[in-house]
Each structure stands twice: as C-alpha cells, then as structure tokens.
C-alpha cells in the first residue's frame, strides 16, 4: 500500500465551492462584526469614563453617516449570527423529539422578543426619572 505514489489535492478556496460551505463561512465571518461591536462598546465605555464632553463627542460621532453605516453592518452581523446560531443549536442538544426547524424558529422568535425587550427597556430608561 505504502508503495503507491498517492496524489494529495490542495484544498484551495474550499469554502466557495458549495452553498453549505458558503453559509458556514458567512456564519463564521459574522464574528468579525460582533468583535467590532464589542470594541465599539468598549470605546464608548472609555469615553464615558472620561467625562461628559468626551462622551458626547462620541455620541455625536455615532450619529455620523459612517457610524450609522457601520452599525447597520453590525446589525446585519448580529442577525446572521442569531439565525445561524439557532440553525445549528439542535445539533448541540440531545434529541428532543421536536423537529429541528421548530427549535430554530423557536430560538429566533425568542431572540426577536428578547431584542424587543432590550429596546423597550432602553426606552423606559430614557424616559424615567
């Protein structure tokens, strides 16, 4: 067996070669946008720690077209993350008897609800006191 001169094929850009791989790479790549958002929040915390002027300077930047565009991208990243997260979730759990689609849809629905709660809580925080 070991005398046969076998040929090893290079993998190349394998992730472009079928829809499943492309979807996987989109899922994985969304992590860069999530990382960017975590850093954005961290930066905002830093500005907050420096006092009102510094923080309000950051807020003003957030309203700029570039920042809005960036956040729309990050929002897209979060949505891709959420949908693909719950798509694979059934594979990480013991069998429940539910069809996998039900777990995915349930998860995405829960996420939509939870995100709405966040927005509502923020609205409440903004108006209270």
């Amino acid at each position: 067996m070991s005398e046969i001169r076998t040929y090893r094929r290079p993998m190349g850009r394998w992730w472009t070669k079928n829809p499943t791989y492309r979807r996987y790479m989109a899922r994985e790549a969304s992590s860069f946008l999530l990382f960017a958002y975590a850093l954005t929040l961290l930066y905002g915390l830093w500005r907050l720690s420096q006092g009102q002027a510094a923080y309000e300077g950051w807020l003003a930047w957030l309203a700029s077209p570039f920042a809005i565009f960036l956040h729309l991208l990050m929002l897209l990243g979060m949505i891709v993350h959420t949908v693909t997260w719950f798509e694979v979730a059934p594979k990480t759990m013991p069998k429940t008897g539910l069809p996998e689609r039900a777990i995915t849809l349930g998860g995405v629905a829960a996420a939509a609800f939870a995100s709405l709660v966040v927005v509502a809580l923020a609205a409440w925080w903004g108006t209270s006191r």
């Binding site: 999530l34 923080y55 309203a63 929002l75 993350h81 959420t82 997260w85 996420a111 939509a112």
Partner: peptide
C-alpha cells in the same frame, strides 16, 4: 447573549440612541 439580545443592543446603542429616538444614551 449575542444571539438573543445582540440585535436589540446594536439597534439601541447604534441607531435609536444616537439618532434621538431614545434618551437612554444621554450622558
């Protein structure tokens, strides 16, 4: 955490707050 509330967070801190739809991000 990101899957459940990530979208809501980005919406709030990146769009609603800076564009004035909520005052939650005021100093």
């Amino acid at each position: 955490v990101a899957a459940l509330i990530g979208a809501g967070l980005v919406l709030t801190t990146g769009l609603l707050g800076p564009l004035g739809a909520t005052r939650a991000m005021d100093y």
